[in-house]
Simulated assay, not measured.
Amino acid sequence: MKKLLIVDDDLDLVDLVTRAFIQSGYDALGAANASDAIDATEVGLFDGAILDMRMPDGHGVDLCKQLRVNILPSVPVLFMTSRDDLDAALAGFSAGGDDHVIKPIKLGELVKRMERLLEITATENLATRRAGLISSVVERAGIAAHDFDDVAHPGSVRQ
């Protein structure tokens, strides 16, 4: 079961979003601020995070940067914001966010967006693992990369 971290200072919204994800088959944990979110990551791993842009003890952008560098480098991060402007979206993307929704949120859309981000992440992780496996097999077999060019482009002449 995928586990999500949901961070917003509006505890009613955290409860609503948490319940929506639980009903959709996820394990979800809510946090009211950046400090609580960091504490939650110290006791458990998460597969994704949903962050509010504005929190009483910091900015969601700063929390995202901190999570990306130290704690959750490769999990999808989706921002929730009441700001409906390009600057807010760009700030989230620059911090390492993968998507954003504008409040008031539509729960069905939020769940589907996170599901899609988790699918993309799983596909990327699988591709990375496969590439690593292929590289290690090639390395152990002593095959040089240029030998693959001969197979891919038969008849070509190496200089």
Rank of each mutant, 00 (worst) to 15 (best):
I134W: 08
R129S: 15
V43P: 00
G92H: 07
P73M: 06
V157M: 13
P76E: 00
G108D: 09
C64S: 09
R129H: 14
D87I: 15
S94W: 13
G60L: 09
V17Y: 02
R130K: 10
I134Q: 09
D87L: 14
L78M: 13
A141T: 01
L13Y: 04
A34Y: 00
A28P: 05
L11T: 15
G30R: 00
T81V: 06
A34F: 00
S74I: 10
H146D: 08
E42G: 01
N33F: 11
L118R: 03
E109D: 10
L29A: 11
V7R: 07
F46D: 06
K65N: 07
L107W: 03
V17M: 05
D12T: 05
M80G: 04
E109Q: 11
R129I: 11
I38F: 03
A127S: 11
R140G: 13
D36W: 10
A40Y: 03
M53W: 10
G96R: 02
A32R: 03
Q66Y: 07
I71N: 01
V61I: 15
A141L: 06
T123V: 14
A31S: 04
G48F: 06
R129G: 09
D85M: 06
A28M: 05
D47A: 08
S136W: 12
A127L: 14
P56L: 05
K112D: 10
D39R: 08
V14D: 02
K103E: 06
K2T: 12
N70K: 13
V75T: 11
